[in-house]
Simulated scan of single mutants.
Amino acid sequence: MEKKKDLSIREVISTNREFYRALRKEAEEIISDERKKILQHRLFLPLAYPDFRNLFLSFGTICLHKRNQNRTFIVNENNEPIIKQLYFYVTHNPSFEGDLSKGIMLQGKYGCGKTVILETYSLLHNHIIRQFRLNYPLLTFIKSVELQEQIRTQSINAFVRRPLIIDEFGRESKTVMDYGNITRPISELLSLRSEIGTLTHGTTNFTLTTLSSDEFYGGMIGDRFKTMFNFISLPGESRRK
């Protein structure tokens, strides 16, 4: 009696359409579940733009007062396009000029208002979560220099999964001497966050080309920046007085 030939997995999939359809359906369900997980970690605001703009004005003024600056946040021709893009981003609007699954990296000259804009966003975001006791992670706003020091004295694991807004990318020392060993805390953190897809926002005075140079984070981290961030430029000169 002739022995029945065993089919390879490739032959089974190509010859058995029912088997293929079942696998395809399972794959689509897994993709759907993963997308839901991503959305569960993102706060989307059900607001019209005029309401968001007014709230941003109020929390921008709060941000300035927290900095001991007794003045009102001003929306002008330079920052309103950025505020509008933030609105599209937090309402998951397809009018956003970028990838809604990535974080935002604000680029611009010293003092043009990048830090205040993203710090205002974090204040508004976190206030809503606390006020309404929503089950979303808070945004941690931290300067790159301070973050590097905390990684050195604590543990990098404390910052791998936490949503961060890292202010002044590129201003910190690129290497740190730790018990005789040269380490790159921020580069290592960015690599780990990129691998698991943790949402990261930031501000910088430097271009992607500069950040990707050997004097900064190098080509590998620079390449990961492309998958982590929407680079948005904020025009204008220093607004500091």
Rank of each mutant, 00 (worst) to 15 (best):
E168Y: 07
K143W: 01
G180M: 06
L199R: 05
P163V: 09
G180L: 06
G197T: 13
T115S: 15
L189C: 06
Y110V: 12
H127W: 14
R152Y: 06
P163N: 10
I142T: 09
T153N: 09
Q131L: 10
T198I: 03
E149N: 13
R71E: 14
D178N: 10
K174E: 05
E77M: 05
F159D: 00
R71P: 04
T183W: 00
S173F: 08
Y89P: 04
P81T: 07
D178E: 12
R152Q: 13
L123Q: 14
I82P: 01
M177N: 10
Q107W: 09
E149K: 14
L118K: 09
L147N: 09
E77D: 11
V145Y: 03
T115P: 05
L192Q: 14
N126L: 13
R71Q: 15
Q85W: 10
V145M: 07
R71L: 09
R193K: 08
I186C: 02
P81F: 11
F141G: 01
I128L: 14
L147V: 02
I186D: 03
Y89E: 01
L139P: 00
Y179E: 08
Y87S: 00
L192D: 07
S187H: 06
L164C: 09
N181H: 11
D167P: 10
Q107L: 13
S191H: 08
D178K: 12
T198A: 13
S194A: 15
K114M: 08
H201L: 10
T153A: 02
L123R: 15
N135R: 12
R193N: 05
L189K: 07
F141K: 00
G108L: 10
R171K: 15
Y179G: 03
A158E: 14
Y121G: 04
F132Y: 15
V90W: 11
I117E: 04
I166A: 07
S144L: 04
R152E: 13
E195M: 06
F169N: 02
V145D: 13
S187R: 07
L86K: 00
R171W: 03
Q131G: 07
D99K: 04
T72R: 15
N135V: 02
R162L: 14
L123V: 13
N68E: 13
Y136E: 05
I165D: 01
H92A: 13
F159N: 05
P185L: 02
D178V: 15
D167F: 11
E172V: 11
E188A: 09
C112I: 07
T91R: 05
G98S: 02
Q150N: 14
K84I: 08
E119H: 14
H127R: 14
S101F: 09
L199K: 03
P137Y: 07
G170V: 11
I128G: 05
I83E: 04
I196Y: 05
F96Y: 04
V90T: 03
Q85K: 06
I83R: 06
K84H: 14
H201G: 01
D178M: 10
M177G: 01
R67I: 00
S155V: 04
S173M: 08
L100N: 02
Q131P: 00
S122D: 06
R152I: 14
N76H: 12
N79D: 12
F88M: 03
L164N: 05
K109Q: 15
I186T: 04
I117V: 13
R152P: 00
N157E: 15
L134R: 12
Q150C: 03
N135L: 07
Y110F: 08
V116Q: 08
R171G: 04
